[in-house]
Every structure is written in C-alpha cells, then in structure tokens.
Design a protein around this nucleic acid. Structure first.
Lengths: 342, 342
DNA sequence: TTTTTTACCGCAATCGGTTGCGCAATCGTT
DNA sequence: AACGATTGCGCAACCGATTGCGGTAAAAAA
C-alpha cells in the first residue's frame, strides 16, 4: 500500500486552517498563535510531512543544486575532485548533479544545455579533450550562471578557475631529474589545446633553460590519446634514437607507466638507465615497481576550493561586481624509486 | 549585462497571444494555426527560449532525476558504477544526483531524506559499512519510491538488487589456489554485516569443503576497516603461526595488497611461498609486481544494469505489480603472477 | 438565410509552497 | 466609551508551464 506524499494543504484541511497559516507555522512565523503552531507542528510530524523542494525551487528560482561536467567519472583524479565537491556542497545544503562528457565535445555541449535547463545554481567544469569552441561556455556567462573551471580550464574565458600549479610542478620534476644527473630528458606531453598540458611543457622547458640544457624538439612527443599503449609505442620510438634519453618526464602517470613498459621490454633498467617521473600521483603509482615518482595533484582539495569559489559567486548580491578569481594549488613532487639515482 | 531567462509568457506578450497558445504551438498541437505556430517558433528560437524544467517537474510530479547513494566516490569500483549509471540515465533523459555516505550511517540517512525531498524519480544505492538499521530504506519502499540496491545490498528488503556472484567468484578463486597445490589457504574477510563479504566467505568455505579441505577458523580473519595497513598487520599475525598459510584469498584487492606488503617484508616469495588472489580487479592490480590475480567485478555493467532495472520500475504503470528482480552478474577470475605456481 | 461544423485560441485551474496585504477580534489606553 | 494598537489568520497573487473546457468567428452545409 503506497503512502501518499502529504502536502501543506492536507495539513491545512485536517486542521481547518489555511495553507498560509500552515506554511507560517512551520517556519515559526510570529504572526501565528502558539496553540495553532503546536497543533500544526504535531500533525506535520505525525504525518511525516516533507516539504516539496521542487515547489520551493520554482517559487524562489533557486534549486540548491550544482552541476558538474567532467570528461570521465571513473578516473582517480576526477573522482577525487567530485568527492571534494560533494563534501563542500553537502555542508552548504546543495545537491550535486554529475554529468560526463566522455571527452566528447558534442556531449559536453548537451550536458551544458541540460544543466542550464535544470536551472542549477552553478556549474563546475573541466573541459573535454575535444573542446576548442567555447560558445556554450560563453553562453553560460552571458546568462550570469556562476561558473568555475577546474583543472582543464579555458584561459580566455572570464570566469573563476582552480588549477594546480602545473608549470611549477613540471619545473620541479624536471629539475629533480637534472639533479639526479640526467643529461637527455625527454617529455611525453599531453594534447596542446589543454592549458594544463601546455603549462607542464613550459615548466619542463623552463627547467631545462635555467640549467642551460638544450631543448631538443625530438625529445618532446605529444601523446594525444592518453592511453598507456600510446605512450608505450611512442617511448619505443624515442628509445630507437641514436642518442636516446636517460630520463623521461611524462605528462601524467598513465603515460609514465606506458614508458616504463617500453623500457622494461627493452631490458633497460629504471632508474639506472632511464629515470622516470610522472604527473598526478595516482594511487597505483606508489604500488607499482619500481614505485613511480610523481607530482601530486590534490584532487579532493581542488574540488573543495572550486566549490567554495562557486558558493561565493552564488551568494554574492545581484549588483556586486562579478568575481573572477583564480586559485592555484601547490603541487608536491613525491620522489620514489623510479627516479632516485643518487 | 545579464541576459534574462525568458519564459513562455514573454513570448506570449511579445506576440499578443496567450501563454497557452505558446505552449501548444511549441509542442505542435493541432489546435494552433500554422502561421501562429511559425511566429511563435521563430521568436522562441530567436530568444533562445529554454523551458524551465523545474516548473515541469512540479506540474508533472516527475523530476527526471535519479539519486545515488554510495559510501565513497573516489573509489575505483564505485566510480565505475556511477559511470555506468550516468551512461544509461543520460540516454533515457535523466539526471543523476550523487551523494556519498562516507561509510557513515547517519549521513546515509540524511542523504536518503534529502533525495526523497528532492522528489527524485528513483534511487540507486549501496549501503554503508555501518548500516544495520533499515528504517530509512523501508520508508522509501513504503512511499513506493523505485529503489535498486547494488553491490552492498540488504537481503531482507523487498527491492531490486544487482550484485555480482560473489560466492561463485570466491569459490573459483579458492579453487584456483587449491589447483595450484596450496594446502593452507587463509582468507582476509570483510565486515560480516555486508552480504558481499559474507558471500565471499561462503564461497571460500564451499570451495574448501568441496575439496575436502579442513576449514580452520584461525585462517579466517576479518578486516573491518578496509585499509591496506590493517590487512598488512593482520597478515603479519597469521604469518607468525606455527603453521602459516601457503596462500591467501583476500576479500578485496586493497587487503591483498596489504598482505603482499607483509609477505614481502618477511622476505617470503610470492607466489612460491605464499600465493595471493584478491577480489575486484582494480586498475592497479595488473600494474603492481607481482601482478595480482583477482576476481573481476564489472562495475560499469553493474551501474548499467541497476539503472535499467530502475527505469523499468519507474516506467511501470501505477497498478502493475511491483518488480523485485535480482540480477547477479558473472565474475571472472583473472590469473596473474601472484598465484601462478604451476 | 439559417444552421452546423470546423479552425483557433483564451480562461482558469493546477502542481506545492510563499508572502504582501487586509480584515476582524481582542486588548489597552485615555 | 471611544479609539488606536496588537494579535492571529485568510485571500489571492505568484513562480512557469500544462490542459480541459468553452467561446467566437469564419467556412461549410442545409
């Protein structure tokens, strides 16, 4: 037997008062008499009255819901970010709607529209690999939808952003390899339309330059797909060079892992023959052998910070200046066996 | 300059017709004249009219939203499930609200209530480790909220369930260890209030029994916390036995990894001295060394199946019999180095 | 020309809750 | 006793879209 959802009107009818009185009584409005309040509250409790948040959302043009658009949920970094988002959002009384683009531009646009139509109070997003057209994002800004980018941001858009200091992290990783005595350091780069990949490449170059190393374009290879098989085959190519590298700094841990596979199959030693540093410090990085050195990317914290920024935007007054803060989180190089030569 | 959200009334006013006419025109109702329809559709497109789904939800008592309650988002298995959920839900035009209980009973109850108040059309959930009281879940059933449990199910509740065949998977894993010539097989079990842990333990016992092995309670240890440190210290205890085991079947891969750490620190060899099989086949399992044998748990598929079941419930008629199907997905033992003795 | 049909469109209620305003009854004051 | 103040509550509009029903005009049939 299905229990019916009871409404404010049911309570009103039962007690012979008007719905407005019930509404006010439930929120302890001073206009309502003590005795009436008591009766209404008692009955509400007895019937297990639960306010319909949909009606509230309509009335107040506020859904208490945040939308999230990410490339992929089943990914350690992004799921850590979501967890951070949910953490802050929950405490602020917000729900979180998750959508994934699966790295597809088309789907990213669909999700953007869908979230807009759902009238979410704000959107957190990390763009797909394919995204090179920003109309759908600009449109959100035009409608004044609070928007915060994280990790995969769009530099040219006038919105809040939370990133890790990719350049600094890459710089430290590369410097570390130099300090270990490596002379030819290769870089497995990411797709260059993503700012994060570009920044990591820049950090790598800056470290080389600061140490008066030559920058050899043959040692910089873009891995567009992001699979470890791709990184493995690209590493294979590099290893065939007449002067192969003695170190590899990879754009992420998966690529680093692919490189390790290629190196191992060639019977070369890590780190003696080739040292390796990855980026992101995924969970598996500490578990594989040799344990992979990597640059920690604080996903959970990124989710928290992004959500805090979003809250700030949502709660600001109509007339106040719009906020366009950018938060840059510190990375942290974790040195493990894969790069410890000395 | 903020663009305003335009409504059906704006269009109506602009064209000097009534809102009802606009509504009908936009959905191609035969009552509306061709010329009027054209004008309305044109203007709607020009103004980029987007229907307010909140209003629709209120009107139709249907939010096109699913709620998900899981213990932890940043967890490979669960994020794979979410991905599967989102996959099916998206195609069916549903949004997905994610909440995490962080293994806290209290928070699970809060999330349940919050989703109920949001009037989600259905709920998918995997209970927390702490959950031993089911009132909040029974309450959902009382209100006829479509509900599907996955992975961490509650056997006694009359709802749809999607699980993997834990017992069968554990049985195969244990049998595999027996076939490898192991004589004393230990089991790192999970918290026994979770059906999945109980089932895996049962599978382990059944395999032993079917092969006329003694069941030694000293070789069955519960890891309640689920951290690898815990598993490591418990394994240490076992290894101190006068007759230590020559194989370990762990309730999950993290526990298996903890066992590997303990074994390695004692300078024992894997699999020669002690063979190991885990459960879940997380991503890192194939990457660590020795590669960990494990029972694959199809998370993505589980999410898909659970969502399909939920859709079936949501779309069934008022009067039709309620559905309480249970789907059991096949597991698959992946044998790797950690258990390959012969 | 009168009646019936048909094509088109608007009124008003509805979903569930909120809120400005007004009204009646009681209370206090001079 | 008369009048202003206070208390306690209801009316009705509103948020945005949908929909049953009814109405008016022109077109078709009688």
């Amino acid at each position: 037997m299905k229990k019916a959802n009871i409404t404010i009107k049911d309570i009103a009818k039962e007690l012979g008062v008007s719905p407005s009185t019930v509404s006010r009584a439930l929120k302890d409005h001073p206009d309502i008499g003590e005795e009436t309040k008591r009766q209404i509250n008692d009955l509400a409790k007895r019937l297990n009255y639960q306010p319909n948040t949909v009606a509230l959302s309509l009335r107040q043009s506020k859904t208490n819901t945040l939308g999230v658009i990410i490339p992929e949920i089943a990914h350690f970094f992004f799921s850590a970010v979501i967890s951070g988002i949910e953490d802050i959002a929950h405490d602020a009384g917000y729900h979180v709607i998750i959508t994934q683009s699966n790295e597809s531009f088309e789907r990213e646009v669909m999700n953007t529209k869908a979230l807009f139509n759902s009238r979410v109070d704000g959107i957190l997003m990390s763009v797909s690999r394919e995204t090179e057209n920003y109309e759908h994002l600009q449109s959100l800004l035009d409608y004044d939808i609070p928007l915060v980018f994280f990790d995969r941001i769009i530099d040219s858009l006038n919105a809040c952003k939370v990133i890790v200091n990719d350049e600094q992290g890459a710089y430290e990783a590369t410097t570390h390899l130099i300090e270990q005595g490596c002379y030819r350091i290769a870089h497995l780069a990411g797709p260059q339309n993503l700012a994060i990949s570009k920044n990591r490449l820049n950090g790598y170059k800056a470290a080389l330059a600061d140490n008066r190393y030559m920058i050899d374009d043959n040692l910089i290879k873009v891995c567009g797909l992001g699979t470890f098989e791709e990184a493995e085959s690209i590493t294979n190519e590099i290893l065939e060079y007449r002067f192969p590298p003695d170190a590899i700094f990879a754009n992420n841990d998966v690529a680093a892992y692919g490189a390790m596979m290629a190196i191992r199959k060639k019977k070369l030693r890590i780190p003696e023959d080739i040292a390796i540093v990855g980026f992101s410090n995924w969970r598996f990085s500490s578990l594989i052998q040799p344990a992979l050195s990597s640059v920690t990317q604080p996903g959970f914290k990124m989710g928290q910070e992004a959500t805090r920024l979003l809250m700030k935007q949502i709660n600001k007054g109509e007339d106040e200046e719009s906020i366009t803060e950018t938060i840059s989180l510190k990375t942290n190089l974790v040195v493990r066996e894969s790069s410890k030569k000395i």
